[in-house]
Design a protein around this nucleic acid. Structure first.
Length: 842
RNA sequence: GCCCGAAUGGCGGAAUUGGCAGACGCGCUGCACUCAAAAUGCAGUACCGAAAGGUGUGUGGGUUCAAGUCCCACUUCGGGCACCA
């Protein structure tokens, strides 16, 4: 009888005060018992001996800010399901864990409490590691790494030097994004809507000499290789990367800018995607903040230009880039000659043309480009339509026509379509040497240097005579200087490393003369661009990774992480992988074969945040409901990529279900060696159907549905015990063991405990995925649907192998059918044996 | 403006190739056990209707014997990019 298994309110179980009674589901007792056993059995360490096929499952490694939070709990629950499933399927699974442990928050915390960033960082890592263990992540702890360990950043530096040798790391002076609050430069990717991605402060521009990675050289490959990722990465991530790379095809066209004021004529290239509109160019614009503007301005307009440049500087990036703003600009007193027809176009400087994109100069075709049209209207410049699109004249309407049409007013292009004219104009430009087709990218080089302390030092020494000198490989790592802590780290706009004089001043490795170390550190995204490679051989001392080990394990089969890294981390890691491929260090070109973006955990429809005061504390949830219930809730709530609103879910219901599943074990009275084939066939069919469905669902990442299927199996088993064949039936043992194995992916403690209760040896994580007996999936009778005009009128129990004719006859015989036909004749009968008959009345 | 994605009960969400819409769970209602509560178990629960029956997957059209699923046009929401020539 069920009532014998009465349990206490486990939700209010007091783990510290009472031992749970025998036969009681107690998550606290399970959590105390199993981790040590898992450690001892080393269930989660890969064998790497070639006896099994290898799989690599990776969660984006965490940043050690405080303890784990709800977001970690969701992401790692998802990754763990994948890892545990593949392990059950017999693969040798690499599922490592580490920490992205360099970065600003550690530094800010250190300043605040007069400490060293390492203290804060490693304390937090220890806290998180303990929480991960409790959370029962099936990770191989022996491969743990931290990017702030000298043994790790030594190889980050080594890789930087290889990039440097290939010309892929270089230093240049230019206007860069500057965060006034963090007092450091930022990469383009770290500026969101003109604000610092990290702290939200308005970003300003500063001219600085900074280090860059030449990621633009890989733009085409970053774009093309996305072909391999289709269907395996979320479409929106691919779209975001495509947008970010921003490839556009067009032409460079050479315009001669006339001589004046004693200076000679010079030619200026423009980039255009619309060479078909060359005849429609009515003026010429250069970016006001580009040096080019100063170079070509006529003497009498020089002061105007300089005043305008000052005016632009005072604008924030947001204001500057707003499309709402009135167009501004100044005339430069010069004319550019249109190579296609010799026409002289006035040259202007304006801030709507960007110095960093294309050539920093454009030919303006106001009729067919809205921005040019806005400018033309603001300064009374002519508008000439050269493409008839059937829309109103832009000069009248104020709306530029950018669509398809027929070319007009355009000499040799007359009468062509837009596409034809682009081709014709391009080839004419190439023939006459006035231009060439080209491809432009929105992507900029990756600014990697940072004026902060807690990062990987850039291994370069600056010498008065030799210039930039790489630190020799055998002197790596260049360790962070000791002794800097607290106030000494506060941001001053230059790197805190500069203050460590003993560290900065070194002899030049080349000539021995006094020289200085580079005092910038690397963007932490450099550290995380190769950590997934290091996991293949974390102890390797002869290089960043053992090439053989990497080629054995990688690419990562399933990567799991938040969509917030759609561009930053994922683009950078793809770039690193391609460079390493070119260096002959890896034999693949994409690091992550499949990507799963888990959703966020919300509370009441909004992201949890301190400022909103709606955070949910993970540890409190774990203490209250248990690890398994929290994990199960995360996974069951919705498909993995959807958000979970903690206000809408019920961890106590998950706990209830787990207890219910666990109690099944107490009712199994058969021994471990019973002959399953003799068990109740109806229950066996459900069990095997569940295993087959679960496998299919798991391979499609439909984890939430898998849990629904286990719930059904648990319900069916309960029924079989209470009002069916009873607990002694071998089919009941089979069903409950199946429950334990499937549950081991989601609720490892409960599954392990249930498994032990069934008299099986630990660990259920290594039990192996149950084999499906195909014969049990074949149903003998099936419910056939009988429709009249597409509406269900009757259901018939028929043999699964029923013939079409037979089913048709049965359906026509149905009383419900004749009632529904109500005397009407029959036009057609569609029969899809054995499932469906549709009768169409005449 | 351009590019992605989504829309199904009170709620989270299910639904091979077009073939029983609403699996599973939450919530709610009732019942059993209990002095009572909790816990547990069982039953019911898309909407309208007393019922017969009808309606129903964001909106409007279409294809089909049959549409949540395919096609066309839209609406709303979410996300990304955006003075990128």
């Amino acid at each position: 009888m069920n009532y014998e298994h009465r349990v206490e309110a486990f939700v209010s179980a007091q783990p510290d005060t009472e031992q749970p009674a025998e036969g009681t589901y107690s998550f606290a007792a399970m959590e105390a018992r199993w981790p040590a056993i898992w450690d001892e059995l080393k269930v989660f360490e890969p064998l790497d001996d070639g006896s099994r096929e290898r799989r690599y499952v990776l969660d984006m490694f965490p940043y050690p800010s405080g303890d784990l939070h709800m977001g970690h709990a969701e992401a790692f629950a998802m990754g763990d399901v994948v890892a545990r499933y593949l392990r059950q399927c017999g693969y040798d699974v690499l599922h490592p864990i580490g920490w992205d442990s360099f970065g600003l928050p550690a530094e800010n915390a250190a300043i605040k409490r007069d400490a060293h960033p390492a203290e804060w960082t490693y304390t937090n890592i220890d806290t998180q590691a303990a929480s991960f263990r409790r959370y029962a992540i099936s990770a191989d702890w022996s491969r743990r790494l931290h990017t702030s360990d000298p043994e790790y950043y030594r190889w980050t530096q080594w890789l930087f030097l290889r990039f440097y040798e290939k010309g892929l790391a270089y230093r240049r002076n230019s206007a860069v994004n500057w965060c006034p609050r963090d007092q450091t430069v930022l990469a383009n990717e770290q500026v969101v809507n003109g604000a610092c991605e990290r702290c939200g402060t308005q970003v300003t521009k500063k001219n600085l000499n900074q280090w860059y990675f030449r990621i633009t050289e890989y733009a085409d490959r970053l774009l093309e290789d996305m072909d391999q990722l289709h269907g395996h990465w979320p479409e929106r991530v691919l779209a975001m990367q495509r947008n970010w790379i921003g490839r556009s095809e067009g032409a460079h066209v050479k315009f001669d800018v006339e001589a004046s004021g004693g200076r000679g004529a010079r030619s200026v290239d423009v980039f255009t995607t619309r060479p078909d509109t060359l005849y429609g160019a009515t003026f010429f614009v250069v970016a006001a903040d580009a040096d080019l503007a100063v170079d070509i301005v006529a003497d009498e307009h020089h002061d105007d230009l300089m005043a305008y440049r000052e005016q632009i500087k005072s604008l924030s990036e947001i204001e500057r880039q707003s499309t709402e703003r009135e167009k501004t600009g100044v005339f430069l007193g010069r004319y550019a000659v249109n190579p296609i027809n010799g026409e002289k176009l006035p040259v202007w400087a304006a801030d709507y043309v960007l110095a960093e994109y294309g050539t920093g100069a454009i030919m303006a075709v106001p009729a067919h480009d809205q921005r040019d049209l806005d400018f033309a209207r603001a300064f009374n410049l002519p508008v000439r339509a050269v493409l008839d699109t059937g829309e109103p004249d832009p000069a009248e309407s104020g709306v530029a026509t950018a669509g398809e049409g027929t070319v007009i007013n355009s000499g040799f292009l007359e009468g062509l379509s837009k596409t034809e004219a682009i081709a014709a104009a391009s080839s004419r430009l190439e023939e006459t040497g006035a231009g060439e087709t080209t491809v432009n990218f929105r992507l900029r080089d990756w600014l990697l240097s940072r004026q902060r302390f807690w990062g990987t030092p850039i291994p370069i020494i600056h010498c008065g005579t030799c210039g930039e000198v790489p630190v020799p490989d055998n002197e790596l790592p260049v360790r962070l200087p000791e002794g800097l802590r607290g106030e000494a780290l506060s941001p001053k706009g230059t790197s805190p490393l500069a203050a460590a004089e003993d560290w900065v001043n070194v002899p030049c490795p080349k000539c021995g003369a006094p020289a200085t170390r580079d005092t910038d550190t690397m963007d932490t995204f450099v550290d995380s661009s190769w950590y997934f490679l290091r996991f293949a051989s974390p102890e390797f001392t002869k290089g960043p990774f053992d090439i053989d080990a990497v080629n054995r394990w990688l690419p990562v089969g399933q990567y799991v992480g938040g969509v917030e890294h759609a561009i930053l981390h994922l683009l950078y890691s793809r770039f690193f992988t391609k460079v390493l491929q070119d260096l002959g260090m890896v034999d693949f070109n994409e690091p992550f074969r499949a990507l799963l973006n888990q959703g966020q955990v919300l509370n009441g429809g909004r992201a949890m945040s301190k400022s909103l005061g709606n955070g949910v504390d993970l540890t409190e949830q774990l203490d209250k409901y248990g690890v398994d219930a929290v994990r199960l809730t995360m996974v069951f709530a919705s498909p993995p990529e959807d958000d979970v609103d903690w206000a809408d879910v019920s961890p106590s219901a998950s706990a209830k279900f787990l207890a219910r599943a666990w109690r099944l074990g107490q009712d199994v009275t058969s021994s471990t060696d019973v002959d399953r084939s003799t068990g109740d066939q109806a229950l066996r069919a459900i069990t095997h159907r569940t295993v087959a469905d679960a496998a299919e669902l798991l391979s499609n990442n439909k984890f939430n549905v898998v849990i629904a299927k286990v719930m059904e199996l648990v319900n069916a088993t309960r029924k079989a015990i209470d009002s069916g064949p009873g607990g002694a039936d071998p089919a009941v043992r089979e069903a409950v063991e199946t429950v334990a194995i499937i549950l081991s992916l989601f609720a490892p403690y409960t599954a392990e405990d249930l498994w032990a209760q069934l008299g099986r040896e630990a660990s259920v994580a290594a039990a192996g995925w149950p084999e499906v007996e195909e014969e049990l999936l074949v149903e003998e009778t099936i419910t056939a649907i009988v429709q009249v005009q597409g509406k269900v009128r009757d259901r018939l129990q028929v043999p699964a192998n029923i013939g079409e004719e037979e089913l048709r006859a049965l359906a026509l015989d149905s009383e419900a059918v004749s009632r529904s036909l109500d005397g009407r004749g029959i036009r057609t009968v569609i029969v899809r044996a054995p499932k469906l008959v549709n009768i169409v009345p005449s």
